[in-house]
Design a protein around this nucleic acid. Sequence first.
DNA 1: CCAAAGTTACACACTTTTACCCACTTAGCA
DNA 2: TGCTAAGTGGGTAAAAGTGTGTAACTTTGG
Lengths: 140, 140
Amino acid sequence: MFFGRYDYSIDAKGRLNFPAKFRDAMGEGSFVVMEWVDNCLFALPMSEIDRISERMGADELMDSWETTGDLFSTACEVEPDKQGRILLPAELREYAGLSKNVTIIGNRNHAEIWDTDTWNARRAAVTNEQRRQRMRELHI
Amino acid sequence: MFFGRYDYSIDAKGRLNFPAKFRDAMGEGSFVVMEWVDNCLFALPMSEIDRISERMGADELMDSWETTGDLFSTACEVEPDKQGRILLPAELREYAGLSKNVTIIGNRNHAEIWDTDTWNARRAAVTNEQRRQRMRELHI
DNA sequence: CCAAAGTTACACACTTTTACCCACTTAGCA
DNA sequence: TGCTAAGTGGGTAAAAGTGTGTAACTTTGG
């Protein structure tokens, strides 16, 4: 399970720290990072990639071939160094608009990598009333 | 079941005592604290988080991804130390406006963490007539 | 084919944060 | 008055995060 928010900055060598909790949740060794939507990056365990691949393979829809191509072409395998930092390819950094401040959040079964300003703006756009509505729907 | 009110203060290290009764009700080990609405924090057992996660994962609604991100990004796992204290991340303390005096209340299936002044003001704002009306609706 | 330049990987040192441990105080109770 | 449980305060060690140097590798141009 992934949750929580972590703020880091990309160092001069382009390295980005990845939260220790998430490293554990990713399992041993490497995991996968890919483009998602709204200029965020998707980080998920190898096992989840397999699951998605299977699901898309089973999909009868005509466009699953194009869809997986679009998605998987951006995916890359990363492995944290001894200090827990990862090095993202320039294309992914550019897609997400990552320059200095980066926010990594947990979201159920995956982590998301955002430019900090982008993430803050996105959260600020959610109103108290929307959250209240969500609470009602969840029947907590 | 969570009920009752407990008043504590945050110490110099940012630690906050968590009521013994609630610790028991949370079950063994750690539990989860997250932002809620009206500047209060929500504390609930791990099992409840799993339940919410499942429910949201099953949700067919287009925006469930955004919704879980908004909610889960604020969540954090905490485990009371041997004295029963928890350490809240700075972001959560800030959201709830916690500086010194903190009030923890029980509310059915979860606990809530409030700034004491905020909680007192909120209670003071409820009128006798509102309580009377609520009583009628509950058929107590 | 080789050398220079840039990139990536690895190692180490340092700082900050968090976890853990122990001691003390207070309140309730027999 | 002693006992127990709850709550509070502080010291110390481990872990997480950050910065810098250097070697290995890749790329590029002559």
